[in-house]
Amino acid sequence: MSDLNLKALYQEIILDHNRNPRNFKKMDDASCSVDGYNPLCGDHYTIFLKLDHDIIREISFQGSGCAISKASASVMSTVLKGKTRAEAEEWFEKFHHLVRGESNSGGSMDELGKLAAFAGVSEFPARVKCAILPWHTMKNALEEKKETVSTE
């Protein structure tokens, strides 16, 4: 039972993104960047976004943390590239439901694609916050940008 849970948590795709994180770099010409920090774990990431009107043209990240948080940031960066702001927020909701094990995950596993690999996190309540940290950071980055735009 517990070994199965572990296999579900540490899927190959997660281990792979942990070992070789995608878009793992600083972005010098980012439209916005936000730090995300989990004081309990010490997980610490910076998410960089380059926005073109409503579209996320580029997304990258830097930082350190456990396999779950790092893979989550990496997979997120591949999923959100080219998406609109509204789409990114939709994905945020879907991911939230998924890792919290809420049944209305807003789509079938097929639809979730690579993100489905994180379904196993829901069996590990202490690790949900690891998976969610990069997504929250991304959302803050988006919202900050919104504020900046609205004050212009």
């Binding site: 517990s2 070994d3 849970n5 572990l6 948590l9 540490y10 350190s64 456990c66």
Partner: peptide
């Protein structure tokens, strides 16, 4: 090397082994 302490803690926990991970 290459494995964060939290992942160590989670995996050991599944074996019933309680250790502390963090700062």
């Amino acid at each position: 090397d290459g494995i964060h302490p939290h992942d160590i803690g989670t995996i050991l926990d599944q074996d019933g082994i309680a250790i502390r991970t963090g700062h």
